[in-house]
Design a protein around this nucleic acid. Sequence first.
DNA 1: CAAATAGTGTCTTTGAGACATTATCGG
DNA 2: CCGATAATGTCTCAAAGACACTATTTG
Lengths: 258, 258
Amino acid sequence: MSNEQALQQYDVKKYRTPDGYTSDIAVFTILSAKAETFKPPFMDLQIMLIKRSMLDSEGRPNMEAGKWALPGGFVDPEESAFQSAQRELREETGVDHIHLEHFGVYDTPGRDPRGWIISNAHYAIVPEHLLSERRANDDASEVELFSVEKVLDLDLAFDHARIIQDAIAVIRQKLLETTVAKEFLPEEFTYSELQAVLKTVTNDSAIVLDAAFARKIKSLPFIQEVPGKKTTRTSKKPTQLYRFIDVEVNNSIYHAKK
Amino acid sequence: MSNEQALQQYDVKKYRTPDGYTSDIAVFTILSAKAETFKPPFMDLQIMLIKRSMLDSEGRPNMEAGKWALPGGFVDPEESAFQSAQRELREETGVDHIHLEHFGVYDTPGRDPRGWIISNAHYAIVPEHLLSERRANDDASEVELFSVEKVLDLDLAFDHARIIQDAIAVIRQKLLETTVAKEFLPEEFTYSELQAVLKTVTNDSAIVLDAAFARKIKSLPFIQEVPGKKTTRTSKKPTQLYRFIDVEVNNSIYHAKK
DNA sequence: CAAATAGTGTCTTTGAGACATTATCGG
DNA sequence: CCGATAATGTCTCAAAGACACTATTTG
């Protein structure tokens, strides 16, 4: 085939190319505030940010030093942005094998003063207990969790305010429109635990009212009772356990719900 | 602030950077096959591809010459990938001010033999009549529409088979889960016209059965009757016209439909 | 037994789904 | 008046929403 000829004559310098290709990761977790015995949980959706060091790893002044930012970094040539996000999350937080999804590209000219730098934004869902191992790395002097209600009041680096805002909107939508809520829950969970996760993103009466939600969970096609299995972790009265099952959810706005 | 210091010492060559940054556009249109008078339309969802020239604009052998490919091209440094997609669509097809959306990034190492080339994929919805002006440009020897049912049988350039497959899945989902169907319809339309658009992507009985759909359209919260306005373009009996209204659609899988 | 959470009984209302029937017009 | 498409009548069944009531356990 003639691709070889074409390749020989191809001038890789013909077009101006980006000055950098990066991945950013919006790491979400849910903290169970006041986890008392025999109480349904009260949960808060949080996002993990790093505080950028004053000096970079080579001892020079760092860009956007002292500001809060999404963890992330440059993509290596032999990996995709998604793989880079996985790798960075592993390197920076020790967390692996979690739900990670690409949700946007940020490439507006001028978004990064260092030049033409393209960032791929991902969101990650990390169970609370896995974040205990988190640690600060080269570029970060601190690592902290912030409630999504308050994170946008911070002084944020680059265009990360925008990216974080988008990430919050995406995870809100995903929690309600897909079954990702399961990533925040144990394998088997009670109706009030699922309810607590959903209440971090909606106030709708069908979800907030206990009786309505306890009844509804039984008719949801993607959730199944674990036969005969109960727990007392959320109340004195033993509570039925449920699990997610893999069925495709028809989310058409023109169809009735099945 | 200290960003200026940091910038002075920043070495733009510190990281290996991509060899190219491109946009691809999956242009969809709907062809009304056999548009007879007093007949509801029968529609077919199609995608526009170009056939890559044997020689490039400078007369050298072209990459992936002779294969079918998505229109697209290199992003300029002073624009975003989205703007580049708009520009290329305008330049290559003369079409502007249409629905255009980013849906994915393709950056798997080795996807393009020319090097480390990142592509942002977009889909566009173009009304049939606007595509009459389309024309072949430098890199394209032919421009043609293909039914989404058959397009994947072609010999496609680069990883465009994958991108096209994803684009078709995205537009199927968007047509059913959002109100983008309106981009394929006139401002005011009949139930059977909307039904014909949806039938290009689903066989579900609630949509295929006339009586059911004619009744359902009245209860959809995002569609409104145009009071007293009827047309005879789809049948001898005058048919009620409808229009989309802007309301946010609650697509939660945990809620009842409102 | 008091308190708290889980879960059901019951009633009303809404609408989905299926199928038959009626309405309207051009030719 | 035939044929085709649009639209409604009617019946059944499922479930949503609201609210009261019952069940189960611990301290």
